[in-house]
Amino acid sequence: MLKFLAMGGYARYVWPCYVLTAAVVGLNIRWALRSLHSARAAARRRIAAVRAAS
């Protein structure tokens, strides 16, 4: 296990790459869901306002 983590002496270059990738992959999921949810919330507000006015 320690040998695996050492990555043949390249640990300080290899693991940051994987951590950065996990961060970008995770953040993109979060941003995409947030973007959809905010658009849906805005649409709901708009529809409610139209219905209240009519």
Binding site: L36, R40, A42
Partner: peptide, 23 residues
């Protein structure tokens, strides 16, 4: 996922958005 949100932002007055937005 993102394209659905972008569509809702563009189709402001279409009837289908009420259903899609969960209203």
């Amino acid at each position: 996922i993102r394209a659905r949100g972008e569509l809702l932002r563009r189709e402001r007055n279409a009837h289908w958005t009420a259903e899609a937005a969960g209203a």
